[in-house]
């Protein structure tokens, strides 16, 4: 899933400065699962903004709405009524950054503000802890690495083994970041594939990643 987290309240207050009637839109997709932008978080964040603005003597009216998803145009259409009826001056989206961009495209003259920092593609480690597992390079090579991804989980995205900064199983950037190459080694050992460590992997083709420019998939068989 896409993992995100709230922007700090101070930053959000600065973003909505100058507006006194806004719509805050949550998303029931990934950001709801990671407790950043679902219905509950919309309610909490809207309340926090209202309280802060009231204390500052500049009250703000915030209408709340949570869409099934913000990364589908048909769900964005659901904003039509609250945007028009409520007369909101701006929309704060609590989706990953796809949401505010879809809303911006649908409402060319309406300011759209991101309420979240979209952080990474990852998964739950334990309750309240998420970690990054994929950088969407567009050309998955994890079969070479026992099913683990050094492109994402090695701070230097090394494809031919660990660097000398790997100490006691942890990365040189932090004693809390496991060296993925240690994990890859264990996996390959368990799989009887340690010989994979001997192969020199050629420079990766990054043209399928964001380096090649914004990407798009067209599935002719699905186009109506």
């Amino acid at each position: 899933m896409i993992v995100a987290e709230h922007k700090p309240l101070k930053e959000l207050l600065a973003l909505v400065e100058g507006f006194d009637r806004i719509l805050m839109v949550g998303c029931k997709g990934c950001v709801s699962v990671c407790n950043a932008g679902g219905q509950k978080e919309v309610a909490i964040l809207a309340a926090a903004l209202r309280i802060a603005r009231k204390r500052a003597g500049r009250p703000i009216a915030i209408e709340e709405l949570t869409l099934d998803r913000q990364c589908e145009p048909e769900f964005i259409e659901w904003l039509e009524e609250p945007v028009k009826k409520g007369g909101c001056q701006a929309v704060v989206s609590l989706a990953c950054s796809i949401g505010p961009q879809y809303i911006a495209e649908a409402y060319p003259t309406l300011p759209v503000l991101p309420g979240l920092n979209t952080t990474f593609m990852g998964g739950t480690v334990t309750h309240g802890v998420w970690a990054e597992y994929c950088s969407s390079c567009g050309n998955c090579g994890i079969a070479n690495f026992g099913g683990l991804c050094p492109v994402t989980r090695c701070a230097k995205q090394l494809l031919n083994g660990p660097c000398g900064g790997s100490v006691d199983g942890f990365c040189e950037i932090s004693p809390e970041t496991p060296c993925v190459w240690e994990l890859i080694y264990e996996r390959l050992k368990n799989l009887g594939q340690l010989d994979r460590l001997e192969a020199i992997l050629a420079p990766k083709d990054w043209s399928t990643s964001l380096s090649g420019g914004p990407r798009k998939i067209v599935r002719e068989d699905l186009i109506l």
Partner: peptide, 17 residues
């Protein structure tokens, strides 16, 4: 080369490469 890593079995293949 870093001779002082604790898992030479993981680092030696890199040096060989």
């Amino acid at each position: 080369a870093n001779p002082f890593v604790k898992t030479p079995e993981l680092h030696l293949p890199v040096l060989k490469k």
